[in-house]
């Protein structure tokens, strides 16, 4: 089961109505692409981090950090790492060093989601690029 951080629900699928313009839908879609936390709140796929109620907050954090870092490295090995992922993990480490576990977990979660989406992109693009070749 994936980790779902507590975030305010800013956007919900239920909030759409036929009165909303196509532009609004496009804007929200772009926001979802850019901000993984927003994506989570709308029921988008969540990052699969190991779930554990055992151990201290630090142990749980280390477990999640290692999982997110593993995904990042896999995306990097495929040449598809996103720009901000490593930086999110660095910031998460800084928060963890300061004992701010909720902030650290939130950053690790964002990094994990980015790496996971990068890997999905890599899978998709392994064949999708062929359809864009100018013929």
């Amino acid at each position: 089961m994936g980790l779902r951080p507590t975030v305010p629900v800013l956007v919900s699928n239920k909030s759409f109505s036929t009165g909303y313009s196509a532009l609004s839908v496009v804007c929200v879609c772009m926001l979802l692409l850019i901000d993984p936390v927003l994506a989570t709140s709308t029921g988008q796929p969540v990052c699969q981090l190991p779930e554990s109620s055992q151990g201290t907050e630090q142990q749980r954090y280390e477990q999640h950090h290692a999982a997110a870092e593993g995904l990042r490295q896999t995306a990097a090995a495929r040449g598809m790492e996103w720009l901000a992922t490593a930086g999110l993990l660095v910031r998460a480490r800084e928060e963890a060093d300061g004992g701010n576990w909720p902030a650290a977990q939130r950053l690790v979660y964002k990094a994990c989601l980015q790496a996971e989406q990068a890997l999905k992109q890599a899978d998709r693009e392994a064949s999708a690029w062929k359809h864009r070749v100018v013929k």
Binding site: L33, I34, M80, W82, L83, A84, Q114, Q117, Q121, R124, E125, A128, W129, K130, R132, V133, V134
Partner: peptide, 21 residues
């Protein structure tokens, strides 16, 4: 090189061709 050029990448999901073709 051709695959790289036409593959979407990054958080904005763009390929080279998306902008320059």
């Amino acid at each position: 090189g051709k695959q790289f050029y036409y593959s979407k990448r990054g958080q904005l999901n763009f390929s080279c061709a998306d902008c320059h073709v």
